[in-house]
Design a protein around this nucleic acid. Structure first.
Lengths: 93, 93
DNA sequence: TTATTATTTAGCTATTTTGCTATATAGTTA
DNA sequence: TAACTATATAGCAAAATAGCTAAATAATAA
């Protein structure tokens, strides 16, 4: 569950896609245009992000619009901080 | 640079190792004992974490002591938050 | 020096990942 | 219906990952 998010996040192209979608929803084509990879390659990256529930898609005529799933992203950030932030051996004031 | 950290973080065993080391420094053997993987397998995970500079090692006689590199971890958390936290389309108050 | 202990490194296999091209699908337009 | 557009899926190849066992290394102890 978190596992699929970490895996999704471990690829730099996918991280860039997430940053793109922070600006707002975009079609698959618009996303593809930001990269120099073939269209199916980006499509599969989108699938990975979708399987991790980090993004959500919605058909609109011919296009498919992707948008960030803010909730999941925030939850993940929360989890990451809980587990890796604070509470070190050496940092006490 | 960040890439190697994300890759290191994308494996659940390595994340557990980091959580272990948050309790304090441990020898490779102590770390290994927490898992059911063969000792060389854990050793390689430690190498991955070391290459990402998330942990640091120090020989002490026969043993090798691993400790968390708190600085790098904090930096990474900061980066993650900068890039993925806040600033959504939908969340304004 | 030899043996023992803790750990890493080498080398192998199976699986997963990431890219590609070619093809299929869904929707729109003529 | 036929053609066109946007996107996904299939299938392949190369590379990376994660596990294993066996062997090497470094330090200590006898």
């Amino acid at each position: 569950m978190n596992e699929s998010i970490f895996k999704a996040m471990s690829d730099s192209t996918r991280r860039k896609i997430i940053e793109l979608l922070k600006e707002g929803p975009k079609t698959a084509g618009e996303i593809t245009d930001h990269f120099s990879y073939a269209q199916p390659t980006i499509s599969r990256h989108l699938t990975v992000l979708k399987n991790a529930h980090l993004i959500v898609d919605q058909r609109k005529g011919n296009f498919i619009i992707y948008r960030l799933n803010t909730t999941i992203l925030q939850e993940w950030l929360g989890w990451v901080f809980e587990h890796f932030g604070g509470g070190d051996s050496d940092e006490e004031e």
